Amino acid sequence: MTRTTPARPISVETVFPELTAYRGRVTRLHPRPGLPGARDSHVGGPMLWPYDEPWPVCHEQHQRETEGYAPDEILTARASGGWPPSRPWPADAAPGTDAPVPFGGLAQLFCRDVPGLPPGPDGADLAQIFRCPFVHGLHHERRYHLRWRKAEVAERAGRFLDPPPRVPLLRSEHELPEPCVLHPEEVDTYPWAEDGVLPGPLIARIDAWDDAQISEHGPHALNYQGALSIPPGWRVGGLPSWASTGPMAIDCASCATPMRLLLTAGGEETDVDSHSWVPLEDRDPSWRGNAAVQGGPFLAQPTRLRFGRDRDLHVFVCPADQGHTPRWILS
């Protein structure tokens, strides 16, 4: 099934003509629980990974854990609407030792499936995203990994790695992505309205408009950030959201070139401020507003993943040389 974003509740460029110059395109991925295969673009599905190629591992020291959740029991509990039991860590497998830890696959995206996904180094057309299942240091930092490959070459492999190596337990239920199929859709977006992104006078007009909406329609009125600028959830390209950190300059550590946003991974596909972005296919046409939204937790958090304290994870790449190390920014 396709997913269709409703027209914006108002014409952004009619209210703020200056934003015409800032209009951009983003591809919403619309992940929904399903049964993706290794040759599909997905979140949480099997990776297209040749059998004889080493799986990525994290060699850093990890924070020691004492208990966790078995991946198979997480999936079983989700299917029944319950909660998985916690288990003690096996003594020979507890993180915090010097043994390498296999990364967990989060998503893979084929250029053939996802409009706006740029090719990687040397024309690679498949991007695979991984996360270390454990945290690092006192601040619970995470480690991510981006692997580019040419899909045609990978698909010719005689055997594929299935299942890949994984840790016996995960530190929390939301470390395990729910297998999701994607429904890519391109939409228009406009920048985050904060200093450093848009001119001060325009931001002041947007703030005044937001205040007027609240005065007229109450606390659940439309606002620019939530309803008109950038959609929530997983998306490719477009503009970064800066809800937690405020705008940041993201430059390449190797050559100082301003980096380009490749992917945003979001824990939530909708929230109280962004229900206007919910696709038409996930609405009951006989209702209006929030009451029309269907799907419950499967719509709000279809992938079951969380990034930081419910932030967006932005993946930036260097446009001058895609072989340079990407940057992973929580905002």
Rank of each mutant, 00 (worst) to 15 (best):
L19E: 12
L19V: 15
L19S: 07
T20P: 01
Y22A: 15
Y22S: 12
Y22K: 11
Y22V: 05
R23C: 13
G24Y: 00
G24V: 00
R25M: 12
T27S: 14
T27I: 08
R28H: 05
L29V: 09
H30N: 14
P31W: 09
R32Q: 11
P33Q: 15
P33G: 09
P33R: 13
P33A: 15
P33I: 08
G34T: 11
L35G: 06
P36E: 07
G37I: 03
G37T: 10
A38V: 03
A38L: 10
R39L: 13
D40T: 02
D40V: 00
D40Q: 03
D40F: 00
S41D: 01
S41E: 07
H42V: 03
V43K: 07
G44P: 04
G44Y: 01
G45Q: 04
G45E: 01
G45V: 02
P46C: 08
P46H: 04
M47A: 14
M47I: 13
M47G: 11
L48R: 12
W49H: 06
W49Q: 09
W49G: 06
W49E: 03
P50V: 00
P50L: 04
D52C: 10
P54K: 08
P54G: 07
W55F: 15
P56L: 13
C58V: 12
H59Q: 14
E60T: 15
E60F: 07
H62C: 06
H62F: 02
H62K: 10
Q63A: 10
R64P: 02
R64H: 06
T66C: 09
T66V: 12
T66A: 09
E67Q: 15
G68V: 06
G68K: 07
G68F: 05
A70H: 13
D72H: 12
D72N: 08
D72L: 10
I74Y: 04
T76F: 05
T76G: 07
A77H: 03
A77R: 03
A77T: 01
R78F: 14
A79V: 02
S80W: 01
G81R: 08
G81S: 06
G81V: 02
G82C: 02
G82W: 09
W83D: 05
W83V: 12
W83K: 09
W83E: 14
P84A: 10
P84Q: 06
P84D: 05
P85W: 02
P85T: 03
S86F: 04
S86Y: 01
S86D: 04
R87V: 01
P88C: 08
P88L: 11
P88S: 10
P88K: 07
W89Y: 14
P90E: 00
P90K: 01
P90M: 04
A91K: 09
A91G: 13
D92L: 01
D92S: 11
D92H: 10
A93T: 10
A93H: 10
A94I: 00
A94E: 00
P95G: 10
G96V: 00
T97A: 12
T97V: 12
D98L: 08
D98N: 11
A99L: 11
A99N: 06
P100D: 05
